[in-house]
Lab assay of single mutants.
Amino acid sequence: NKFNKEMRNAYWEIALLPNLNNQQKRAFIRSLYDDPSQSANLLAEAKKLNDAQA
């Protein structure tokens, strides 16, 4: 399933972002599970926040 693969990839990328705190990571990951079709958008948002907090 395409969404499962995208979701799994996004999950690990988000989990490993160095500048997000655990609460932020959990919120993004919860959103991934709520709507796997938004994986790419959620990952992009997480990366933006990660960069902003660098």
Score class of each variant (00 low, 15 high):
43 L>Y: 03
49 L>T: 12
43 L>D: 00
31 S>P: 03
39 S>C: 09
43 L>M: 05
26 R>P: 01
23 Q>D: 10
38 Q>K: 10
31 S>T: 06
8 R>E: 14
32 L>A: 01
21 N>H: 10
30 R>Y: 12
5 K>T: 01
32 L>C: 02
31 S>N: 12
22 N>D: 05
7 M>N: 01
49 L>C: 06
16 L>M: 07
40 A>I: 10
13 E>S: 09
49 L>Y: 08
25 K>R: 07
29 I>P: 00
34 D>W: 04
39 S>T: 05
13 E>N: 07
16 L>N: 13
47 K>E: 03
4 N>K: 02
22 N>S: 15
31 S>R: 13
18 P>D: 08
9 N>Q: 14
7 M>Y: 04
29 I>F: 10
3 F>K: 15
30 R>W: 10
20 L>H: 00
24 Q>K: 04
48 K>E: 13
6 E>I: 06
49 L>H: 04
15 A>R: 15
41 N>D: 08
9 N>T: 14
24 Q>C: 05
52 A>E: 08
13 E>Y: 14
27 A>P: 02
11 Y>V: 14
51 D>I: 06
42 L>V: 14
20 L>E: 00
14 I>T: 01
40 A>E: 07
42 L>T: 08
51 D>C: 12
54 A>P: 10
17 L>S: 14
9 N>P: 02
12 W>S: 06
35 D>I: 04
31 S>D: 12
47 K>M: 06
36 P>F: 09
39 S>N: 06
12 W>Q: 09
29 I>K: 05
21 N>G: 07
29 I>T: 08
3 F>E: 15
13 E>F: 15
44 A>Y: 11
29 I>S: 04
26 R>C: 14
8 R>W: 15
2 K>Y: 04
29 I>G: 05
20 L>W: 00
18 P>K: 14
28 F>E: 00
33 Y>G: 04
28 F>P: 00
51 D>A: 13
20 L>F: 01
51 D>H: 10
18 P>A: 14
44 A>S: 10
53 Q>I: 10
45 E>N: 13
53 Q>T: 09
54 A>K: 08
4 N>I: 03
26 R>N: 13
45 E>S: 09
32 L>E: 00
32 L>D: 00
8 R>P: 01
16 L>P: 01
12 W>I: 06
31 S>A: 11
9 N>V: 13
4 N>S: 03
42 L>Q: 05
46 A>W: 01
32 L>N: 00
19 N>R: 06
7 M>P: 00
38 Q>W: 09
17 L>F: 09
34 D>P: 02
9 N>H: 15
54 A>Q: 08
24 Q>A: 06
16 L>D: 05
4 N>R: 02
47 K>V: 05
17 L>D: 01
30 R>V: 14
20 L>G: 00
22 N>V: 10
28 F>N: 01
36 P>D: 02
14 I>W: 00
13 E>G: 14
25 K>S: 01
11 Y>T: 07
11 Y>K: 13
2 K>Q: 14
3 F>H: 15
35 D>G: 02
33 Y>E: 04
5 K>E: 15
27 A>K: 12
29 I>Q: 14
26 R>Q: 10
26 R>M: 07
47 K>T: 04
45 E>C: 11
2 K>R: 08
15 A>P: 02
6 E>W: 01
48 K>T: 09
33 Y>H: 06
5 K>C: 14
54 A>H: 12
36 P>V: 03
19 N>K: 07
31 S>M: 08
34 D>L: 12
46 A>I: 02
28 F>Y: 15
9 N>S: 10
18 P>Y: 04
40 A>T: 11
2 K>C: 15
18 P>W: 03
34 D>M: 07
29 I>D: 01
19 N>D: 05
17 L>Y: 06
51 D>W: 11
51 D>L: 09
36 P>E: 02
48 K>V: 07
13 E>M: 07
8 R>N: 05
3 F>S: 15
3 F>M: 15
31 S>I: 09
27 A>F: 12
40 A>C: 11
7 M>K: 01
4 N>A: 06
24 Q>I: 08
37 S>R: 06
37 S>L: 11
52 A>Q: 10
44 A>P: 02
19 N>Q: 12
16 L>R: 13
22 N>Y: 11
1 N>A: 02
25 K>D: 00
52 A>L: 08
2 K>H: 14
14 I>M: 05
40 A>F: 06
39 S>V: 14
7 M>L: 14
25 K>H: 01
6 E>Q: 06
3 F>N: 15
54 A>L: 09
16 L>Y: 13
11 Y>E: 11
43 L>V: 11
7 M>H: 02
33 Y>K: 06
14 I>S: 00
37 S>G: 06
22 N>C: 09
54 A>W: 06
41 N>L: 08
1 N>I: 04
30 R>S: 09
21 N>F: 05
53 Q>C: 06
29 I>E: 03
39 S>L: 15
30 R>T: 13
41 N>M: 11
12 W>C: 11
43 L>Q: 08
32 L>S: 01
28 F>V: 09
45 E>Y: 05
18 P>Q: 05
7 M>D: 02
37 S>Y: 12
28 F>C: 05
41 N>H: 13
13 E>W: 10
53 Q>E: 07
20 L>T: 00
15 A>Q: 13
17 L>M: 13
35 D>S: 06
32 L>F: 03
13 E>K: 12
25 K>Y: 03
37 S>W: 07
44 A>C: 11
46 A>T: 02
14 I>K: 00
41 N>V: 08
27 A>R: 11
20 L>R: 00
44 A>G: 11
43 L>H: 02
17 L>I: 01
37 S>N: 11
50 N>F: 01
19 N>V: 04
38 Q>F: 07
22 N>M: 08
38 Q>D: 10
4 N>C: 15
34 D>K: 08
20 L>C: 01
11 Y>D: 01
30 R>H: 11
53 Q>F: 08
1 N>S: 02
37 S>C: 08
5 K>M: 01
1 N>M: 02
10 A>G: 02
19 N>A: 04
20 L>Q: 00
11 Y>M: 15
50 N>R: 01
33 Y>I: 13
26 R>T: 14
11 Y>N: 02
35 D>P: 01
12 W>G: 09
11 Y>L: 14
5 K>R: 03
40 A>Q: 09
47 K>L: 05
32 L>P: 00
34 D>R: 08
50 N>S: 10
13 E>T: 09
33 Y>V: 13
47 K>N: 07
23 Q>W: 10
47 K>C: 04
34 D>C: 11
29 I>L: 11
21 N>K: 06
21 N>R: 09
27 A>H: 06
12 W>M: 09
39 S>M: 15
30 R>E: 10
45 E>I: 07
8 R>K: 12
8 R>A: 14
31 S>Q: 10
3 F>W: 02
9 N>L: 15
45 E>A: 05
8 R>M: 15
6 E>K: 03
39 S>K: 14
52 A>N: 12
31 S>E: 08
24 Q>F: 02
41 N>T: 11
7 M>G: 01
27 A>T: 12
35 D>E: 05
9 N>A: 14
5 K>V: 03
18 P>G: 07
6 E>Y: 02
47 K>S: 05
51 D>M: 09
23 Q>Y: 07
30 R>D: 12
31 S>L: 09
33 Y>L: 15
3 F>L: 15
24 Q>W: 03
9 N>E: 14
22 N>P: 12
53 Q>P: 09
14 I>F: 02
19 N>L: 10
34 D>A: 08
40 A>G: 13
42 L>A: 05
4 N>F: 08
33 Y>S: 04
9 N>K: 15
13 E>H: 14
21 N>M: 07
5 K>G: 03
7 M>V: 09
48 K>W: 07
48 K>P: 00
44 A>H: 13
32 L>I: 07
41 N>G: 08
18 P>S: 05
52 A>M: 13
